[in-house]
Every structure is written in C-alpha cells, then in structure tokens.
Amino acid sequence: MSAQLEKQASYEATFAHNFRKQVFSRVPAIPARTELAWKTVLVTGANVGLGFEAVRNFLRLRPKLVIMGVRSVEKGEAAAAVLRGEFPDPRIEVWELDMESFRSVQAFTERAERELDRLHVVVLNAGLGKLKYERVEEGGCHEVSIQVNYLATVLLSFLLLPKLRPTASSSEPGRLSIVNSGACLGLSLEDPGNGRLLDSFDRPQKFDGFGQYGLSKLLVMMFVATLAQIIDPKEVIVNCTDPGATKGTSFFRSVNWIMGLGVRAFLSIIGRPTKDASRIYLHSSLVLGEESHGSWTDWIIRAWPKTMYTQQGQQLSERLWDETLEELKFAGVREKLQKAL
C-alpha cells in the first residue's frame, strides 16, 4: 500500500511532519483481541532497549515460545531472567546472533531449521549507529555499519523465510517486520555509473556515520519492497517498521560523550519511551494485515522514502536486488529463493 502513497512522501520526509508525529501522536494500544497462543516469536537485539521491551510486549500476548536473538548470550540470559520472573508460563530462549557476522547468521538459521517446527512472527531489530568507518574480519570489503549490517539483515530474512511459511497445522501467513528508520525518508542513492552500487558505499574518505546509517536503511526498504513483489502475502507478510525517535536505548552507545550528550538532550524532547515505541513493532507484525506487505509502517501504513517513487530510484532498486543476490551467493540464497517460489 505504500506504493500508492507517493503524494504523501515529500511531506512525510520533512522534519516538521516527524516532529509533529513524535510530539503530538501517541502509539495506540494493541487491540484486545490480539493473542499469540501456541505461536513462536523471534526478536533480534532483544536484551536491551526496544528489543527487550518488544519481547515484554509479545509475552503479554501469551505465546508458546519467544526467542531472543542476542550478540552476548550472557547478557541475553540476564535479560531473560528478568522476563521469566514476570512471565513464568511462556518459554523464553536466548540464541546467539551476531549481525556483524555472516557465519553467525548462518549458524542461527541452521539452529532454527533443526529445532523449530515453525516461526510465526519475526522482528529484526538489531542495529547500531556508528560514526567510525570499520571493516569486518571475515574478509569482506564492506564497512560494518552499512553493507554488512544490510547484507546480514537480508541474509537472515532469506534464510528464515522457509520457517515463516504456513504449514498443515498452522495455515496463517508468517510475519516478518524489519526495523527501519525515518533517517532514510528524504535520502536518495547516487548512481555509481558502471560501478557496483554496493561498492560505492565502501569509501572511507566519504564516510559519514549518520548519513550512511540512513542510506543503509534506504537499502533495506528497497529490498523489502522488491521481496514483497515475489513473496505471496498469504504465505509471508513482510514490511518495514519504524519506531521513531526513542529515548532510553543504547543505539548510540558507540558515539563520543559530547555527541552522546547532544543526542540524549534531543531525545529527551521528542523521544518516546521504549515501552511505547516498541509497541509499534506489534502493530507492524500483528495488527496490520496483507495491506502492509512491502510497506513502510508504524501503527499505520506510510509512504516509502520519496526516492523510491522516481524512475532512478526504481532502477537502482533493481540493481540493488541483483547485486545483493550476487553478494550472498555463498549462502545459495538465489537457489533457495527460486525453490521457495
């Protein structure tokens, strides 16, 4: 449905709109009829901030199992212990997942394949804002906060799709919501000409932490919109979810203390508490239906980043899709996707 909201895109990308939405709008309550009995939920980045509060919100709906995907199992178990004290009935499991490691993503999904009959709801929440250019140790040529985080998110999405599909005993569609950010709404991608689009981000001399973070989120939305064109929403509903500015998270923990003070001061004015912002995840993954497939959402469906309505944006989305599948060929994602269709 975001595809039909082009007229709203320019305004929704403005600071005025987002300030107004942050300050004067309230995240609605989850409808009383919503429940998760006998269902399995996965939330990544689940031991702190928005991820932790999202798990708490999901647990209130009495699922059979909630999996907390975390980078540190020790910290994850400490967070899970708090939640087990509040919700003794549902099973809560802590699984290791490092979104800066393709090997970790593959190991995580292999475990899901072995141990789970089905996943019903997946919220990919893990993310971190970095101001410093970094490379991963796995031999790739991408800085961690842009391509690797984007590619790991895409890889995890692809590899979890089979577990999200309906089964004979559970016929309703799976739900995949990928957390995004309004930082990308007014951005556009630079056409690299004959060069690869992904490679055009791998330039230390041009690295801009906040700007590149927004561009990485634009890549995610372009990916989701393309994926939604080939995935039947009666099998898996996939969308992006934007919690908006939120205070009380550790998202900017890697910035220097001076910038950290400025960020915290700004968020104290417009930021929502995590308990409210995390409720948006439930709206996107439970309350909104097939109409949200391939869309940008919070508690309603909103316009895509405005560049996605342009001819150049659509062409770059196609290039991004092809390059992404090529980049992830080591995991056989193209073959697995074709088999799943």
Rank of each mutant, 00 (worst) to 15 (best):
L160W: 02
V82N: 06
F102V: 00
P88T: 08
L59F: 13
S104L: 04
A112D: 07
V66H: 08
L161H: 10
I67T: 07
Q147N: 15
P90N: 13
L128F: 10
V154L: 03
E100M: 10
S101Y: 14
F87D: 00
N149W: 11
R165E: 12
W95G: 01
V123A: 03
K130Q: 06
F158P: 00
S157V: 07
D89H: 14
K130N: 02
L124D: 08
G139W: 07
L156W: 12
G129T: 02
L160I: 09
Q106R: 10
R114S: 11
G139N: 04
S157W: 06
L61Q: 04
V94R: 14
A46Y: 14
A107H: 05
F52I: 06
S170Q: 06
Y133E: 01
V43R: 12
V154S: 03
K75H: 09
F102S: 04
E110G: 00
K132L: 04
R165V: 01
P166H: 06
E86P: 02
A107T: 07
N47V: 11
E96M: 08
L65Q: 13
M99F: 14
R71P: 04
K132E: 12
I92L: 15
R114K: 15
L159M: 06
L159S: 01
E138D: 15
G127S: 11
V105H: 05
V148M: 11
G139D: 03
L83D: 02
D98H: 12
P88H: 13
G49Y: 02
L124I: 09
V55M: 09
V66L: 10
E77L: 00
V41P: 07
R165K: 10
V94S: 09
A46L: 04
A78V: 13
N125F: 05
E137P: 00
W95S: 03
V73F: 12
N57W: 08
E77H: 04
N149C: 11
A107I: 02
V136K: 01
P63V: 14
V70K: 08
V94F: 15
V41E: 01
E53V: 00
E143T: 14
L42M: 14
E110W: 10
S170H: 14
P63S: 12
L159Y: 05
V55C: 11
N149I: 04
A54M: 14
F108Y: 10
F102Y: 14
W95P: 03
L119K: 10
E100Q: 09
S157D: 05
R84E: 04
L124S: 08
R84D: 04
I67N: 05
L164M: 05
F58G: 00
R118V: 13
A107V: 04
R56N: 03
H120P: 01
K130V: 06
E100L: 09
M68C: 02
G140P: 00
T109I: 11
K132V: 10
G45D: 09
T167Y: 03
F108A: 01
G139C: 03
P88Q: 02
G140H: 14
P166I: 05
V105S: 00
S157Y: 10
D117N: 13
A126N: 03
V154H: 11
V70H: 07
L151R: 08
N149E: 13
R71K: 13
G140Q: 14
A78S: 13
V55L: 05
A80T: 09
E74M: 05
L131H: 05
V66E: 04
